[in-house]
Nucleic acid binder design. Sequence first.
DNA 1: GTTTGTGAAGTATTTCACAGCC
DNA 2: GGCTGTGAAATACTTCACAAAC
Lengths: 223, 223
Amino acid sequence: MSPQETNQFPNNTEVPEIVIARLPQYLRVLHTISDSGIDVISSLQLGKQMQVTPTQIRKDLSHIGRFGKQGKGYNVGYLATELQRVLGLNKNWHVCLIGIGRLGRAILNYPGFAPEGFQIKAAFDIDTAVIGQTIGGLTIQPIDDLKDDISKHNIKIGITAVPSNMTQKVVELLTSYGITSILNYAPMYPQVQPHIKVRNVDPVLALQSMTYYLNRPTNGAEV
Amino acid sequence: MSPQETNQFPNNTEVPEIVIARLPQYLRVLHTISDSGIDVISSLQLGKQMQVTPTQIRKDLSHIGRFGKQGKGYNVGYLATELQRVLGLNKNWHVCLIGIGRLGRAILNYPGFAPEGFQIKAAFDIDTAVIGQTIGGLTIQPIDDLKDDISKHNIKIGITAVPSNMTQKVVELLTSYGITSILNYAPMYPQVQPHIKVRNVDPVLALQSMTYYLNRPTNGAEV
DNA sequence: GTTTGTGAAGTATTTCACAGCC
DNA sequence: GGCTGTGAAATACTTCACAAAC
């Protein structure tokens, strides 16, 4: 396949969402591999490093294109670039944050978003005691500015860090202004239309899904 | 089935992990339903509220027992209690935290764990500038105390908030001391033996799995 | 010789549909 | 009449196995 072919969608079937969710993980590992000076890697080696089967890597990648060379493997830099392109990570995304409580402040100060191309351009609250404060270089605004700021700053992603009982309302506000991607930190899962993507960050739920196994007799410990 | 029967394992086949991961979500919604004064709920109503199919709820619950009444539905309080029991959430769990950087501090101050029965009993770091400080009522200890503290405080769960390049080592340390449940905040997935459970909290990965859809022509937006 | 990309086979998970019970 | 619990059917996902490419 010649490089100038536009092959962003090699077939007309949907890429399974579970595959999409794995691509950023591949990308991240490719970056560390690239940093260590390795130029070419096989699905076998990559799979060993990630503890996934090489077949899964090849099958996943086959959903979005053909990036490898038989007998060789994948060019690390090229594959990373292609994954970034497919995932839309070759540009910056503008994000807004709703809810400047304890958690919201931590998010504003979290240094992990910007280097990955996610820039928090505006932050909102309803509490007049918070509005006007400057945190992490951003001045907190009243929620009424949300609509205008979304278009002004070309914001495509919303982060919600408001109390559970307000989250559904805030999510509906965001989607009514055209936001289709939401990262939700509240411990409840807002209901949205199918074309809206929500990812929930929920450490308590993660803990609660492990205690089940702490209760069992230690199966597999004989390994 | 009489209540005094021990039916914690209605059959000898494994409960799928994907089912276990959904049970805490059911539990959470049941609590809010209970708070609103409703005593009995059908899988249809519950499914509407959670936007999942009633069949899935019934099938999931059937893996761990029979909790409903035909023609009626589920007693909210009873089902919640049973889910708590099966998940091991009817007791407190002792947790330790490794890594007291910016993120670790936020975790120590996060008020969401304790009400759900997860108590951070000890916190560790290797930085002598941090060791000895008191944060959120806990005195930060050197990592060398980890082994003793795990047995002293009956700690069963570890939270890692150390840099990516140290996470694998810290996870191996924890598992070598008998920890089998780990909540990992580092943006890398540590490799562990099959009987060790790891849950990763990774907001950047969550964002990166949404940008794919932001790039597409808005499919489904015609709804 | 090595490794990809992929149909086919095999598993896992979800949904259907209905007997049995309230 | 309404709803659960569950085999059977359908769908989704993973793994196998191998032809084609290097």
